[in-house]
Amino acid sequence: MLDAMTDAAGSVDSGDVVVVSHQLPIWMTHRRVAGRALAHDPRRRRCTLSSITTFERRGDRFVEVSYREPAAGLQSLATDVGAV
Rank of each mutant, 00 (worst) to 15 (best):
D7K: 00
H40Q: 00
R46A: 08
C47G: 11
S76I: 09
M28G: 11
Q23G: 15
S51C: 04
R31L: 12
V19Y: 05
V18C: 09
M1P: 13
A39Q: 13
S11C: 04
L49D: 10
T48F: 08
F62H: 01
V18N: 08
R57E: 03
R57Q: 07
A8R: 02
H22F: 05
E64R: 02
G59H: 03
V84K: 14
A34V: 12
H40F: 07
D41C: 09
G59V: 06
S14K: 12
V63Y: 07
A78H: 04
A39E: 14
Q23R: 12
A83V: 15
T6F: 00
R46S: 05
C47S: 11
R31S: 05
V65C: 03
A71V: 09
G10F: 01
E56T: 03
S76G: 10
A72H: 00
R57G: 05
D80N: 13
Y67F: 13
M5P: 04
D7F: 00
V81R: 15
R68H: 12
V33M: 11
T79N: 12
L24E: 14
A34Q: 14
R43T: 10
D16R: 12
R32M: 15
F62W: 03
A83M: 13
V81H: 15
R58N: 07
A72F: 01
D7C: 00
V17M: 06
S21V: 14
R31P: 02
L77Q: 12
A9V: 01
H40L: 00
V65M: 05
V18P: 04
V20K: 01
A39K: 10
M1K: 09
G82K: 07
D16Y: 10
G35M: 12
D80C: 15
P70N: 03
S21D: 14
S14V: 05
V17E: 07
P42E: 08
V84Q: 14
E56K: 02
V63H: 11
V84T: 14
H40V: 03
R43V: 11
H40N: 02
A34T: 14
R31I: 06
S66N: 11
R43F: 14
R44F: 10
I26W: 01
D80A: 13
R44P: 01
L49N: 14
R36C: 15
H40K: 01
G35T: 13
D3C: 04
S11P: 06
E64A: 02
R44W: 09
R61T: 10
R31W: 03
T79R: 15
V20H: 06
R44K: 13
W27P: 00
T48G: 10
Q75E: 14
R36Q: 15
T29L: 14
G35P: 10
R46L: 08
F62K: 01
R58G: 05
T53I: 10
R68C: 08
A34L: 13
F62T: 02
L2W: 00
V33R: 07
R68T: 12
F55A: 03
E64Y: 00
Q75G: 10
D41H: 12
R68P: 07
H22W: 05
H30T: 11
S11A: 10
S21I: 06
R58H: 13
R31C: 02
G15Q: 05
A8F: 03
P70S: 01
E56F: 02
R44I: 07
T53L: 09
S66V: 09
P25C: 03
F62M: 01
R32T: 15
V84L: 14
A71H: 09
E69K: 09
S14T: 09
T54D: 04
F62L: 04
D16L: 12
E64N: 05
T79L: 15
T6L: 00
